[in-house]
Design a protein around this nucleic acid. Sequence first.
DNA 1: TTATCGCGTGGGCAAATGTTCGCTCAGCAA
DNA 2: TTGCTGAGCGAACATTTGCCCACGCGATAA
Lengths: 318, 318
Amino acid sequence: MTLGRITPETTRLDDAARAGWLYYVAGNTQDEIARKLGVSRQSVQRLVSLAMSERLVKVRIDHPIAACMDLAMALTERFGLRFCEVVPSDPDAPDLLTGVAIAAAAELERRLKLPEPQIIALGTGRALKACVEQLPRMSCPQHRIVSLLGNMMADGSATPYNATIRMADRVGAQHYPYPLPVLARDEEELRLLQGQEAVRHTLELCKRADLTLVGIGNMGRSAPLYVDGFISDAEMEILEAAGATGEITSWIYDAQGVRIDTDFNSRVASAPLPVASDRDVVAVAVGQAKIAAIKAAIAGNLISGLITNESTAASLLA
Amino acid sequence: MTLGRITPETTRLDDAARAGWLYYVAGNTQDEIARKLGVSRQSVQRLVSLAMSERLVKVRIDHPIAACMDLAMALTERFGLRFCEVVPSDPDAPDLLTGVAIAAAAELERRLKLPEPQIIALGTGRALKACVEQLPRMSCPQHRIVSLLGNMMADGSATPYNATIRMADRVGAQHYPYPLPVLARDEEELRLLQGQEAVRHTLELCKRADLTLVGIGNMGRSAPLYVDGFISDAEMEILEAAGATGEITSWIYDAQGVRIDTDFNSRVASAPLPVASDRDVVAVAVGQAKIAAIKAAIAGNLISGLITNESTAASLLA
DNA sequence: TTATCGCGTGGGCAAATGTTCGCTCAGCAA
DNA sequence: TTGCTGAGCGAACATTTGCCCACGCGATAA
């Protein structure tokens, strides 16, 4: 036991530890401690904050949520996010959407409870669909829900992952679907389609959205766009050769989060990617396959917030 | 992770943990948390205090206070202990268990983090119960927790101070309860009970325990055994006349720490008192009433370590 | 000796926190 | 349906805490 000399500093730290102990463990007020230690209350206050700043006082929260909060803070700091939420993940089903869906729904609900009218823009995909499923029925006629992209394929059939209609229905808000296919046949058709008055109005709303909630798609054979038939094998090869790393509302970007310049992107009919530094753009994304796509989206400042789960968060930080 | 169903209670505790984290770890004010979680400040206050009362928030002071270290060293040398820890005590509540509970939990945690399988034997009592409450949740399937005594009264009812089950649950270790009452009706019944295969196995584990953690009971009207109804008034008088000074896992010993030879001890069903010179036997004990009992336990070599607080330590040395 | 500096102290005040109380509302039995 | 009950909520109030400032005291250098 290396009992150091009794120096002013050790005794001061001792006192700090003692004051901290009486305060945090024994639950005394600073007044009581002052009386017990025979010093002024202000001195106790100084001792207690010294104990804190010297990290003599260790606090930990004994609940699975605590780990998630730690991850969320780490992500926030490391990647400069404005909003981050990490939910526990089931080790046996790390890609389960339910957890993030509930969290995202809670965040949506919080927004919807605001009395001020909000414009909420939604992307599509399994994650957003799951998220909307978790919303309770409410009545929010003051808000507007707008879709960031169409959900029709070129032949007029619809993909099943439309979130906007369902959400508007559930929460009783006005809604603005995006009356276009996901992809135009060519640039000319795209110009034609986007020239319509209704579309221009919708685009305007998207730009002004208070909250934009999107999914993030990965590339490769498990890419949503590939699985749902928007990208052919040949096209996927071209895209990947061009550095395609991920996709948000069908806009395909590279590892730096910069929209790549290919034929595919020139035909994307979705609303322009929002500027995340300006408005809240929150992504809901989970799974090992999406790690690169998420990192790129953050790097390119395409999103300002992230809702994910523990295992994905851990991989992002690794 | 045993993700339980989403019940009102779990989500409430989740929220409490969140609020507690934001408050104690991230240092937010309750107002800020209220804004972030979208609830009122009062609700945050309720959540934070819920997190406290549910013991989700663990605080410990990580500094060897010189006065405590001096006392610990003095105790170690004077009484030939192998391990001694003294925590500060609140002058107005010198018998508060929280402090020693935290210290004992820290020592347990240190052991539990060892990769080598450990056998940890536990007694019962308020002190041990409080100590187990301070343990964080962890996953230590390599260790075994074994109970040194039963917690049933003769009529089959259980005392509330069982530490083993709770500890095993918290730290995710195998556990071996002691499937016997505290006291047998008579010696014959005792032999019969202890003849059972399961009991013999448990006793074997107790003998081999790497760490034995026990409380120390005093005699007299405030004796735990008396308060909990294991000793009648008449019996207590007989015992005290016979020199009864203290008790560990119900074995009653005299001022020299020698087990006294009475009817009571002949019916005690607990595991034999361990030989402290051989294995680590650490007692957690606090309070003026226990001074004599602690001294005797040390004198009789019943324990090799002690966790106590300043005022008790000072009295022991006086 | 005196000006000055460093440091702890106590006063005072604003912000943060804890507590009480009345209200609402869901759930439930009559 | 009505009335009861208990949980949860937020307003208002009481207490505690954090912080700034001016003062006093002892040490030190000019």
